[in-house]
Amino acid sequence: MRLSGRVLPYVSVIAVVLLAVGLIWGFFFTPDDFRQGASVKIIYVHVPLAFLAINIYFMMFVTSLIWLIRRHHVSALAAKAAAPIGAVFTLAALISGALWGSTTWGTYWQWDPTLTSFLIMFIFYIGYSALWGAVDEPDKAADLTSILCLIGSVFAVLSRYAVNFWSQGIHQGASLSLDKEENVSDVFWLPLVTVMAGVFFLFLTLLLIRTRTEIRNRRITALQAREIS
C-alpha cells in the first residue's frame, strides 16, 4: 500500500504525458494512408485499447492463479479491480473498431473471428464482475471468481479456435510484430507505440487506484465489523 502510494503519482504522470504526446502526434501530425485516407487515424485509439483489453484478461488469469495457489489477498483484489477496466477498454475497442469498419469494410459489424472473440470477452468481463458483486464473503468471492477466470481462460482459447473454424475473417492480422517486415511504416508506428505505452501506464494508474480503493473498502468493513462486536 505504501509503495503503491509512492509509485502512483509517477505512473499517472507518465500516463498523461505519453497519452497527450501520442494522441496529439497521432491526430494532428500523421499523414493519411494512401488507401484508407484519414480513417487510418482510428488506429491510434483502437489498437492500443484492444491490445490492453486482451492483456488485462491475461493479467487477471495470472492474479487469479496467484490467489488460488498463494492466497495473496491483494492479488485477488487486483483481479477484481482490473475487470471493469478491461470491460471498458474492450467496449471502446469494439466501438472504435465498428466505426473504423464502417468506412473501410463498409459495415459496422461482421461476424468475424476477431470481433466475435472480443464480444465474448466483453460478456465475460461483465459476468466476472457480476459474480464479484453477488457473493458477500470476500474470500469465497475471490475463490469463485478465480475459478471462473481460469475456466474462462481455457474457454477463451477454445472459443478463439472455434470461431476461426466457424467464419472466415476480414479483420487484418497483427499490425505490430517484432520482426519489422510486416509492420506498418514508421510514420504510423512511432505515435502508435507512444499511445500504447500511454494506455499501458493509464491502465497501471487505474489499477493502482482501484486496488487501493478495494483494500481500503476491505479495511472499512473490517473496522465496522469490529465496532459492532
Binding site: 465474448i120 461483465i126 453477488a134 472459443s159 470461431v163
Partner: peptide
C-alpha cells in the same frame, strides 16, 4: 447459494457454451 444465482448462471455459462 449466490444471490440471483440462476440469472448469473446463464450469464456465466452461455458464453462458455459457444465453442
Amino acid at each position: 447459494g449466490v444471490r440471483r444465482g440462476g440469472l448469473l448462471l446463464s450469464l456465466l455459462v452461455l458464453p462458455l457454451y459457444i465453442p
